[in-house]
Design a binder for these strands. Structure first.
Length: 479
RNA sequence: CGGGAUGUAGCUCAGCUUGGUAGAGCGCUGCGUUCGGGACGCAGAGGCCGCAGGUUCGAAUCCUGUCAUCCCGACCA
């Protein structure tokens, strides 16, 4: 059969309507369901299993770098939210308010946390006394609420699940190092576990977190050329700790304000996985986070010996992989499509013909290539195949990123290119908010980040106003 | 928050113009035949036609209101 033919008619073709394709996958692959409250999604077991696997990887890395998990209240009294001026201005317009307890009106209304900076500050104020307690390296797994006007599964919801790391440090430098370290953790997880290449950099002032001194980001490019912020790390300096009057006895027996960070990654990353790797037949999941890594499909399972052999393979593979044997009475063709839609990295087919020849068929999800493998070296072949799949997934995503990134100098070229197709534009910027605004109005592009490393090193003039500058910016359309 | 559209079975929708017993496909249940790319036959279950008023002998259908959802813009992890 033709390789480019779409197998599953229920999924809209990716090139026909990318947004609809994405929604189809979320629903058909049973990742989420809509709830009766707009913007609040139900994460179904398969979708949640993906999140659990991501959580595990992140959590291990947080623990390895000395962080501890804890849990803070869901509600924030209005007076507490008000304490840091920039922060409240940024979040107040989009919080949900609790005004009553039972039938009784509350003395002070409380918002459902949109993020927990002020809660951590309120806590630190009580427990921090001496430099000997620093740093405090905390993380919280939970959900937050932001009353968004438009919502989409994973990408934007009124409630979303995430982790938020919050730390305080004795010195500014220590906090800055922490900010960078956690950004590197996110980069590592994206590139080495999720197989999504990212661009690491700093946000411009207009794009930074409300209340932060500086915000850092990893930006990924989706298959349609749009950007998705995949993780952020903020350096707060002592802005919050001064606003909350958090002090400690320092090494000279004076009172000092600690320096603070926060960093987060959310279930939005699942959207990034879908939109980076998926194709017309459904998801393509990175093996590291796939709830099912290997699915065994018996062919003609009613025939003698087939199911027994399939079970035997399952018990062998279970030792190393999350393995599922589908012995329901759906047809093999139905099963093929089902697990392709769900993005299972490797399918093992075993039927009477295979058993005769002591072999099985391995089919990789990313390329759909078939491999006939002797049952004697199944494990070694499978291990190599999975490595190969991971490399290929990263390379494909990288190729998309590279081929859709252009470096431009003149505004007219930027306008022209951004009208033709979505992608990243590298262009110099003088640093003024005015020019950033103009880029948005004329070319429809927002600044994604000022990239680190080689990407950022250059000299020339601002693409908008022509002033000399050495600040490179990645511009793009964002989700 | 502005502009547009849509609410009928679990899902996708037909029926509404011209009022008169609630429909199809897919999915679901049961039995049988199948099984190497979403198999087939037969039998079944499933509905407050978004909600509230009104007109009428009679409303899914006409009128008014209301709620919800989706798309496009402005705002956003």
């Amino acid at each position: 059969m033709a390789k480019d033919k779409k197998l599953v008619s229920e999924i809209t073709s990716r090139d026909t309507d990318f947004a609809q394709w994405f929604t189809d996958i979320c629903i058909k692959a049973e990742l989420v369901d809509y709830s009766t409250v707009k913007g609040f999604m139900i994460m179904r077991p398969y979708g949640f299993a993906i999140w659990e696997n991501i959580q595990r990887i992140l959590d291990d890395k947080f623990k390895a770098t000395g962080h501890e998990n804890m849990a803070l209240p869901l509600l924030i009294p209005e007076s507490l939210l008000q304490k840091e001026k920039d922060h409240v201005n940024g979040f107040a317009p989009e919080v949900a308010w609790v005004t009553h307890g039972g039938d009784e009106k509350l003395e002070e209304r409380m918002c459902v946390r949109p993020t927990s900076e002020v809660l951590f500050c309120d806590h630190w104020k009580n427990v921090l006394h001496t430099y000997r307690q620093l740093p405090m390296l905390y993380n919280q797994w939970g959900s937050v609420v932001r009353w968004e006007k438009t919502t989409r599964p994973f990408l934007r919801g009124r409630e979303f699940w995430w982790q938020e790391g919050h730390t305080i440090h004795e010195t500014a430098q220590e906090a800055i190092d922490e900010t960078m370290q956690q950004l590197d953790v996110y980069e590592d997880v994206c590139e080495n576990s999720l197989m999504i290449p990212v661009i690491k950099g700093k946000k411009t002032d207009s794009e930074k977190f409300a209340g932060a001194v500086s915000t850092y980001t990893i930006e990924a490019m989706m298959h349609d050329g749009k950007a998705l912020q995949s993780g952020t790390s903020h350096y707060f300096g002592d802005g919050f700790t001064k606003a909350f009057d958090i002090t400690f006895a320092d090494r000279n027996n004076g009172l000092s304000y600690p320096h603070q960070t926060s960093w987060g990654m959310s279930t939005r990353i699942i959207g990034a996985i879908i939109m980076s790797h998926g194709d017309d037949d459904g998801m393509v999941l990175p093996p590291a986070i796939a709830p099912i890594q290997v699915v065994i499909i018996p062919v003609a399972q009613h025939k003698e010996g087939v199911l027994e052999k399939a079970k035997e393979l399952k018990s062998r593979l279970m030792k190393k992989y999350r393995t599922k044997l589908d012995d329901t009475d759906n047809s093999p063709g139905w099963k093929f499509s089902e697990y392709e839609m769900k993005g299972v990295p490797v399918r093992v087919e075993i039927g009477p013909k295979d058993i005769e020849q002591n072999q099985c068929v391995l089919v990789r999800r990313d390329t759909r290539e078939k491999l006939f493998v002797s049952l004697d070296n199944l494990e070694t072949e499978l291990e190599a195949l999975i490595k190969n799949i991971e490399t290929n997934m990263f390379n494909m995503a990288k190729e998309n990123l590279d081929s859709r990134t252009v470096t431009l100098e003149k505004m007219e070229d930027i306008i022209k290119v951004s009208k033709e197709k979505d992608g990243f534009v590298r262009a110099l910027w003088c640093g003024s908010e005015q020019c950033e605004k103009q880029m948005k109005e004329q070319a429809g592009l927002s600044s994604r980040c000022m990239p680190f490393g080689e990407q950022g090193v250059t000299k020339g003039v601002c693409a908008v106003c022509g002033k000399p500058t050495d600040t490179m910016v990645i511009w793009g359309k964002a989700y």
